[in-house]
Simulated assay, not measured.
Amino acid sequence: MAPTERSFARRTLLIGAAALTGTALPAGTAHAAGAAPWPRRFPLPDGFRPEGIAIGRAPYAYFGSLANGDVYRASLATGRGAVVARGLGAGHPSVGLRVGRRGRLFVAGGESGEIRVVDARTGETEQVYATGTTFVNDVVLTPDAAWFTDSFAPVLHRVALDRHGRPGALRTVTLGGDWEQGPDFTANGIERTPDGSALLLVNAFANGGGLMRVDPGTGLARAVGLGPARLPNGDGLLLLGRTLYAVQQWQNAVDVFRLDAAGTRGTAVTRVTDPRFRIPTTVAAWGDRLYLPNARFDVDPPRPDTEYDAVVVDQV
């Protein structure tokens, strides 16, 4: 095991705590006294086709476009926003994304097979990695790496990060153990375990859909015990402490689990639904709120004038 892998658990715990400190505010502090309430729904550009969302250390949400790879930034305080990074065009979507240090966005490139690193401050694409696979779907950041799922191949893609968060070499980790690769979309959302010792992946195929706990050094996967709960439409994951939010897109729901520290078992807590959900895909947090883009996959084919939005619900 490489030195970077040995330090995975300890350093992930440290950065995870710092990230939560940077983005989580006490309940009721979402806006200043006397100011207008922060919106609980805001529009995204027509025809944008959002899928991923990321929120960093400031109250702004970044959304990736399936249409052309653009990245849109919206103020959580006002709901207003603009495209801050132009994509590479049709066939180069932005699917899952996360905010790293110094405003770097790590972007999963979907069917392009690309991983992109974008400077959200300048809009420039700093680096493009070609994975050689067919659908790079979602991403999570740890102190040493950016980890990407691939929906049509039993692999994870790892982009090394130095101590300043700058991206380095790309390598592929093959998934084994309990991993079962289905004939269609299989891997989707990705997170870390509460203790930082491993990764959690949605596997929408195995045993009717659920979670896998993956050793980042070996790729060995073990099914997470969730009792009778299943994630057949599992998409984005969000871990806050030991609470895991799992978006079930076509069910228009977010399932909430309480995990043990190692991420080997989980207990279903509740299911969050909302009449404003229109096939949400991913979720990010700020303060005591959860933000979800509505992907509207039921609009087929999507049109340039199709309306899209993001909605806000309370954390459990």
Rank of each mutant, 00 (worst) to 15 (best):
L14I: 14
I279T: 12
V155D: 09
D235H: 03
R222W: 00
I190R: 04
T78R: 11
F205R: 07
N233Y: 14
V214L: 01
G113W: 14
R222G: 11
G28F: 09
F135W: 08
G266K: 10
L156W: 05
G227T: 09
E51Q: 15
P167Q: 07
H92L: 04
A17D: 08
V95W: 11
E126G: 12
F185V: 14
A204C: 09
T142R: 02
P232M: 05
G208Y: 06
L14C: 06
N203I: 05
A18W: 04
D274G: 10
W147L: 08
G109W: 04
A90R: 12
L237I: 09
R57F: 07
A77C: 02
R213M: 01
R86F: 00
A253R: 05
W286R: 12
G34T: 13
R101Y: 06
G210T: 07
F63T: 06
V247C: 04
L244T: 06
E191A: 15
A284N: 09
A35W: 05
T149E: 08
F185L: 14
R40A: 07
A2P: 00
T12Q: 13
G109H: 01
E51D: 14
G225F: 03
T270R: 13
A18E: 13
R11C: 12
R121Y: 12
V83E: 00
G168Q: 04
H31I: 02
R73C: 08
V99D: 02
P43Y: 10
V214Q: 01
R242N: 14
T122S: 15
A153S: 15
G56Y: 02
L175T: 05
E111I: 14
V312R: 13
A77P: 04
V254S: 07
G103V: 09
V173E: 06
G100K: 09
G208D: 09
A18C: 09
L244N: 03
E180P: 08
R86N: 01
N137R: 10
G236I: 11
P26C: 01
R296S: 10
A284G: 09
L259K: 01
D215T: 02
V256S: 01
A85Y: 02
T23Q: 15
T125E: 08
I55E: 03
